[in-house]
Design a protein around this nucleic acid. Structure first.
Lengths: 136, 136
DNA sequence: CCGGATCCCACACGATACTG
DNA sequence: CAGTATCGTGTGGGATCCGG
């Protein structure tokens, strides 16, 4: 497993916060858009194969149409997702990942993988924290 | 560069959305807590070295005391950050990354690195999207 | 089938003042 | 110095109805 320190992986660290303002900080700018409640889920789904609107809706049952539309639109705007309309009757729309989206998903999927592998450790930490808070 | 498909990196993909509910989905549960406006910035700072409260405040000038306190508390609750109080006078508090936090930061730093390297591409995609929207 | 338009609320977040 | 308490606001997000 790769355990290099992040120092040599990050081009600029603290410069991103103090030197640059919020709009020009790449970390803030990119992260804030993929940090939404549904963005990572949709990217995860589209990493498998292209999906149609209704398929995505059924994949994530507790998303509203509004948020699915908005999330897909934001992901498309940032260049991660491509939207293709098929002029059938009734019309169908297919969403797929762009090369840029795939290149983002490569590191992002590692965070998701970490989440699944370390979920229990996080939950245990929360439980311990809450209990010592009550005790103190 | 590692260009493996994410399929063999993710243990479960679509199961995370439909089969599991929102609370039991590791991706949702972990991501929702590091998706805050400041969480990644604080983790980025603490990946360098431990910092005291006031130092973090000066590092990220546009964060309010309230959000710094709350973000650090949430990160501590999830087990990513350790909080050590030095009973000096006046008291000082030092925040540092735990092993769990470092293990999370390893993949997370790759997303941040991606953000810095591809920021211009994202901005260009946004610009193109907005212009074709106006034209259409 | 794929959304847009509207209304509404909860909560993330900010500003300020105050305490050990 | 390192927070807590209180209040106010912007926006992410849900519910519902409407249109192509």
């Amino acid at each position: 497993m790769d355990q290099r320190t992040p120092a040599d992986l990050l081009p600029a660290t603290t410069e991103c916060m103090s030197e640059w303002n919020a709009d020009n900080c790449p970390v803030r700018d990119v992260m804030s858009h993929i940090a939404g409640k549904w963005s990572t889920l949709i990217l995860l789904a589209l990493s498998e194969r292209p999906y149609r609107f209704g398929e995505l809706r059924r994949l994530v049952p507790d998303i509203s149409q509004r948020m699915l539309t908005q999330t897909l639109r934001d992901l498309q705007r940032d260049g991660y997702v491509a939207r293709v309309v098929f002029p059938t009757k009734p019309p169908s729309v297919e969403y797929s990942m762009t090369p840029l989206g795939r290149s983002l998903f490569a590191p992002l999927s590692r965070v998701m993988r970490w989440a699944t592998e370390n979920h229990e450790a996080v939950r245990a930490a929360r439980l311990a924290f809450d209990q010592t808070e009550l005790a103190g």
